[in-house]
Design a binder for these strands. Sequence first.
DNA 1: ATGAAAGCGCTAACAC
DNA 2: GTGTTAGCGCTTTCAT
Lengths: 366, 366
Amino acid sequence: MAAPRKSSSNRRATVSIRDVARRARVSIATVSRAVNRVPTVDPDLAKRVWKAVAEVGYVPNTQARALVSGRSHILGLIVSEITNPFFPELVQEFENLAVAQGYEVMIGSTNYDAERTEQLIRRMLQRSVDGVAVMTFGIEEDIIKRLVEPDFPLVFVDAGPDLPNIRLLKVNYDEGIREAVQHLAALGHREIAFISGPLRLRSAAARRDAFRKSMADLGLAVPARHLVEGDHTLEGGMAAIEKLAALPELPTAVVCSNDMTAIGVLHGLFRTTYKVPEDISVVGFDDIHLAQFVLPPLTTVQMSCNSLAAAAVQALRAGIEPENARAPQSEWPIATHLVVRRSTTFPRGTLPALKRKAASAKAGKK
Amino acid sequence: MAAPRKSSSNRRATVSIRDVARRARVSIATVSRAVNRVPTVDPDLAKRVWKAVAEVGYVPNTQARALVSGRSHILGLIVSEITNPFFPELVQEFENLAVAQGYEVMIGSTNYDAERTEQLIRRMLQRSVDGVAVMTFGIEEDIIKRLVEPDFPLVFVDAGPDLPNIRLLKVNYDEGIREAVQHLAALGHREIAFISGPLRLRSAAARRDAFRKSMADLGLAVPARHLVEGDHTLEGGMAAIEKLAALPELPTAVVCSNDMTAIGVLHGLFRTTYKVPEDISVVGFDDIHLAQFVLPPLTTVQMSCNSLAAAAVQALRAGIEPENARAPQSEWPIATHLVVRRSTTFPRGTLPALKRKAASAKAGKK
DNA sequence: ATGAAAGCGCTAACAC
DNA sequence: GTGTTAGCGCTTTCAT
């Protein structure tokens, strides 16, 4: 309750470590130790210090701390586009976790622009972030390698530059995408198309490869015309489904490299006579919040933001505070799983037959 | 191109002002002045300094600068929810502008939680941000007033605590909402409902008031049953339209306090037999990116993120650097305007008659 | 276990 | 106009 005093006519309330020391009748070194919970401090003295801290309303000056210790307790978080709905969810969770663990976070988006990316990294370095999580699912790795000290703590998704203090979040695309393809195949689909992300991104390529592999494992062919490159945006999804719709025969199902693409597909199809899922089943990837609310609710492969964020923060800390790291793991697995909603059903033309069966079964019951 | 040297075995490349001074054969004070573009430095010396800066790869240490100058060059930006699509667009623009003007930005979301808000402000203060823009459209003003020095630079939207160094972004709700109501009335609507935001937020109340005023000015009644309180979320919009749909007679148009609510309305109606806009016209507010891509594309009142962000950054700087402020304005107007898309049309039942007229007019022309 | 003192890298008086 | 110097608030040796 004690109001902080002002040291001068300045705008900041400056209660320094000295004020605490004076009040607790100890040296500033002891205050520093007590506040930083150094275990060798006498418990009684520590208590006195904490009392004084409360009385004068002392808050350690982060800048000074950072200056002398060389550590800012700021984590850098780089995303592609903050306006892509996937990322705010990630940012939110990352921030919650970081703050809970005593870190602040500095966010930036690359907007897929190399120059902007470079500026961003420079800015982060200049603010001496303790480490950076690069969650762009693909980035010019050279930029990082050029700007950053070799042993700077770094986290990448899927793949990153070859650096000693880097940790990789290994998303298990195969798992979820296999589930999606099997779900579709089980419904009877054979003609399944895939709308990829920009293939220069390794993560986009990985998703497409997972799709091809899953299809091949089921003995299903994927003709080139069923592999369309999108750009992970709603607009891209609309453009991609238009291409697919222009084919002599529309595939009966399409899986998309992310949810925004799938939502674009939904929108693109809305303008045609095709209905989802009756005429074509649509599967997304990511499971963003919005996926539950589009029409129909989107069947999608969930890649948990929460686990991604948690792994990122943990992995960064492991790089920053090696002393606290449990295991020296350099790869952190991230699971993916299919979430079935309403955008997938039997291939068109097959449903009536099934319905008839079901009806007769029901009739038999009664 | 010169590689930065390491001072010790540390991870940071430490090129200090001293290295530059040595290299340029001047004092560190001169380096400081040159780098900070103090005009009294001899041009030749300045040139030598800059040359040395480039040669040794000097980057000023932000922490030290902040420590001694008391200014961090960080702008705080508080939003309600980063996952609400309106905000990422704002954040993006705010960040672009701030960075372009030499500031970094520290973002945080309140999630409408008072305790979280308080922690957030404490964190920002502890990182000694130079000012804070509170873009939540309503917040516990007491928290701010309690935590912050009286003359701390602050920006609020619509209304804020009574503090000397505060600037208000005054959104002209009347303007855009009047346009929306007039647009609807011109189409022939009389039964126009309004789904508000949470009314404890001043800005939500302001939008509702603007609606009532516009209606009254046109001599249109707004029965209580046509005023539903939402919560500015998609889910809230769905719930609200359900209430409206349960009425003996569905209004012919509904205007919503924000776009997410309107999108919720669209989704809620999709599950009924009512069609938008044939059976009911829907108007949003904000004009988020998504508004163009829902089905049908949303007629909405645009409140430009860009102008909001630009005004916020400018207003903050005016508070932080009074010496650079052009005018000592304390209120910054933000315009709003109707953007007509496809979610509004004539009231149900009237279109056929009009169509017939149009057809005969056309026939007459030919 | 505690204190004195040396800086971290920089800016801003203050002298010249 | 330039240099010298005193800190900003803190952590961390190094003595004790």
